[in-house]
Design a protein around this nucleic acid. Structure first.
Lengths: 225, 225
DNA sequence: ACAAAAGTGTTCAGCGTACACCCATGA
DNA sequence: TCATGGGTGTACGCTGAACACTTTTGT
C-alpha cells in the first residue's frame, strides 16, 4: 500500500499506433483481457511506473501487449476527464506512432487477449474514452502530414511514389493529380530516387528513399515567414 | 491520508502565459512563497484536484496565484521526468495562454509572494524544470503564430497594423516589409478595418479588428493540400 | 499491339517579395 | 513646412493546379 497526504490520480499511457498496408490506414488495438471493459477493444497502454518517464512507460506497455518495440513515439495530449475510468481517477498521456506495418509482427501479451490491426474506418466499439483519443490523434495526423514528412514512417525504406500518394489520399480524404504530386515530392529535395522495380503489369516505378539528413538540413535553413 | 494499492504520482498544472505590452513579448511569473524553491520564480500552477480536469485546475491555480481569470488556455505538453520535483514523483501538465496584458491586473495571491511580467529575453532563474517548459512553449508559439491567428489574442479588440507586425517580428525574430505585411494581413479576409485613430506624430493609422467568425468560416472551407 | 502504370513538360493564375510614391497628422 | 508614420501600387519570380504526351513493362 502507498500512502499520500493528498489524493493522487493514477496515470496511464496509451499509444495510437498507425500502420499502412499498401492501401489502407490501420490502427493497432488490443482486446482487453481484464476488467474493466474486459473483452472490449482498446488502445495498447497501461499504468506508468514511478521510475520511468511517460515515454518509457508507453513503450514498455506497447511491447508487453503487442510485442512491438523500438519505435518512435510522440506525446500529443493528456486526457483528464474526471470520470473517464470507472475504478478511480485516472488520467492518460496519449502518444502517436507511425510504423511500417509489415515490418513488425503483432503478438498479443500481458493483459491483452488479442492484438490486431483495424482499418481506420472500421473500428470496433472501444473501451474508456479511447474513441475520443483516436479522433484527436486523427486530427493531429492530418495536421502533421501536411507539414512534416511522417508518411515515410509508414513506408518501407524504399517505396514508390504511388504508395506515398496513397497515404496522403487516405489520410486527407482527397485525391491528387499524379503528375503534380510527383513533381512536388521530388522538388522537396529529400525524396531520393534509387533503383527500379517491376511488379506486375505496367511500367516499373522508381523506388525512392527518404533522406532524413537532407530533410533536417532544410528545416535548419528554412525561413519561417 | 490517502492510500492506494499501487504508487501514484502527484500531478500539477503550469501555465505559460504570454503577454504583449506594445513592444515586448512578456511572460507572467510568480515568486514562490513556499518550499521547495522558495524565493525562486516559477510558472503559475499547482496541484490538480481530484474533482477537476487539468484545464480547470490550471485556471483555478492561475486565478489563485495571479488573479487572472476567464482566459483561453490550451494544453501543449506533459512533463514527466522522474526527478523534476525534489519532494516526490510529480508530473505537470503544461498550458499555453495569450492575453491582452493591459486588460488584466496582476495581483499575487495564495502561494505566490509576487506575480509579475518579465520580458521573454530577461527571465530570472527558474524553479523546477520550468526553463524547459518555457523553451518548449516558445517553440510552440513560433509554430502556432505562423499557422494560426493567435497574435490577436495578445492585442486589444482594435489594433493597428504596426502592432500586429511588431508581435510577429518579436516572436519570430525577424523583420518584415511594412507594405507587404499590410497587404498580406488584409488579404486574409478576417482582419477588418474600423475607424481611425490619432496618437502622436505621423498619419493616424486605421484600427482593425479580428473577425473570429470570418476566420472560422475560412478554415471550414480551406483545402488542405 | 494493347492495356496498365509511370516518367516528363507546358501553360496559366495566384502569391510572396522587392521596391516607390503619396497622404495625413503633430510640432 | 517638415518630420513621422501609414496607406496604396507595380513588376517580377516562384509555386501550385490543370492538363497531354511519351515510355516501359506484362500479356
Amino acid at each position: 500500500m502507498y500512502t499520500y497526504k493528498y489524493p493522487h490520480p493514477a496515470v496511464t499511457t496509451d499509444c495510437v499506433v498507425f500502420g499502412f498496408d499498401g492501401s489502407n490506414l490501420n490502427l493497432l488495438l488490443i482486446e482487453r483481457g481484464i476488467e474493466p471493459f474486459k473483452g472490449k477493444w482498446a488502445l495498447p497502454g497501461g499504468f506508468m511506473n514511478m521510475d520511468e518517464t511517460a515515454e518509457q512507460g508507453a513503450m514498455r506497455e506497447l511491447q508487453e501487449e503487442t510485442s512491438i518495440k523500438d519505435i518512435y513515439i510522440e506525446q500529443f495530449h493528456t486526457f483528464t476527464s474526471v470520470k473517464r475510468d470507472p475504478r478511480e481517477r485516472v488520467l492518460t498521456i496519449a502518444f502517436l506512432a507511425f510504423i511500417r506495418q509489415e515490418k513488425y509482427e503483432v503478438i498479443a501479451g500481458d493483459d491483452a487477449a488479442k492484438a490486431q490491426w483495424f482499418p481506420i474506418d472500421q473500428l470496433p466499439e472501444l473501451a474508456f474514452d479511447h474513441k475520443d483519443i483516436i479522433t484527436m490523434a486523427l486530427d493531429k495526423l492530418k495536421w502533421k502530414i501536411t507539414y512534416e514528412p511522417i508518411a515515410f514512417r509508414l513506408l518501407n525504406k524504399t517505396f514508390t511514389m504511388t504508395q506515398v500518394q496513397t497515404i496522403y489520399e487516405v489520410v486527407l480524404g482527397q485525391t491528387f493529380d499524379r503528375r503534380n504530386f510527383h513533381k512536388k515530392m521530388t522538388a522537396l529535395g529529400y525524396i531520393i530516387p534509387t533503383e527500379m522495380q517491376s511488379r506486375g503489369s505496367g511500367r516499373p516505378g522508381t523506388l525512392f528513399t527518404f533522406d532524413e539528413d537532407k530533410y533536417k538540413e532544410q528545416i535548419e535553413n528554412k525561413k519561417v515567414f
